[in-house]
């Protein structure tokens, strides 16, 4: 039947709307427990926030440095190859610093963290869900959003920008390594050129994105965790969906935020 296809489309649209509504509800409740909850004598435990900060922030530093250092090196090598044809290898320094701070640092760090932290959040919340632990919390009168989600969102909200700053620095060090050791640019000159074209605006536009990315990673991770069903297989599936959704939303949000800055200045 050709009506069948309309039925299927209708069902799919309905499902998407439902997912969207539930996601907005989760966001609303998270904000409620963060800002309104403390006035009802139900504050979020600061210990839980700090624990999450250590797990999400401190323990991710190595991988962020690793990824961004090599990104900086590759970026410097690729651009040096092109710029040397025009005799402008000195501009490798500013090219690397501006592109890392504006774009690559925030986005790549967010993607790495989505893979590491987003997956961990979904797996943790998801296995708690399938093992009745979420229900146990509810039965004890402990709101799972206050107890589980808010500390994660707050911790990542503050930790991701910090990681991005570290990542930006590592990326620039990567560029420096190629610029000074391979291209034989004077170290002082390299640093001067790197910061000559890097304005404060480049850094804060880059950092402003990361707050959005942090919310996306934490909330998508928790959302998928709360909607896990079907035992271990379900946890695996939810984790995959969580990471993929975070990746897509991060790229989309990056496009939107960059677009806002771009068209605002026109």
């Amino acid at each position: 039947m050709n009506l069948d296809i309309f039925y299927k489309i209708g069902c799919a649209v309905k499902e998407w709307i439902q997912i969207f509504v539930e996601f907005v509800q989760l966001t609303y409740q998270t904000l409620y427990w963060l800002f309104v909850g403390p006035f009802h004598k139900k504050p979020v435990k600061s210990v839980a926030v700090f624990e999450q900060m250590v797990f999400m922030g401190t323990k991710s530093i190595i991988i962020v440095i690793f990824v961004m250092l090599f990104t900086g090196i590759v970026l410097a090598m690729q651009s040096a190859f092109q710029l040397s044809k025009m005799g402008g290898t000195i501009y490798v320094a500013s090219l690397v610093s501006v592109s890392i701070c504006r774009e690559l640092g925030p986005v790549l760090t967010a993607l790495v963290i989505a893979g590491r932290i987003g997956a961990a959040i979904t797996a943790e919340v998801g296995s708690m869900k399938v093992n009745e632990q979420i229900e146990a919390l509810e039965t004890m009168g402990i709101n799972p959003i206050r107890y589980l989600v808010v500390p994660k969102v707050v911790a990542l909200f503050f930790m991701l920008p910090c990681l991005v700053v570290i990542g930006n620095f590592a990326g620039m060090v990567g560029g420096y390594i190629i610029g000074v050791l391979n291209l034989k640019i004077n170290a002082y000159l390299y640093i001067q050129t790197a910061f000559k074209y890097l304005s404060l605006k480049d850094i804060y536009t880059g950092l402003s994105k990361t707050f959005v990315f942090a919310m996306i990673i934490a909330l998508v991770g928790c959302y998928q965790g709360f909607h896990t069903k079907g035992g271990a297989v379900g946890v695996g599936r939810a984790t995959t969906i969580s990471v993929v959704t975070s990746f897509i939303l991060i790229i989309l949000a990056d496009c939107v935020v960059t677009g806002i800055y771009y068209f605002k200045d026109m």
Partner: peptide, 26 residues
């Protein structure tokens, strides 16, 4: 709900807390 207690089929203890913290959580 604070006047209820519930004992789950799978016990539903929080994995990352030890026995004392689990019991003390409420």
């Amino acid at each position: 709900k604070r006047r209820f207690g519930m004992c789950f089929q799978s016990a539903a203890l929080l994995d990352y807390l030890n026995v004392a913290d689990n019991v003390g959580l409420p």
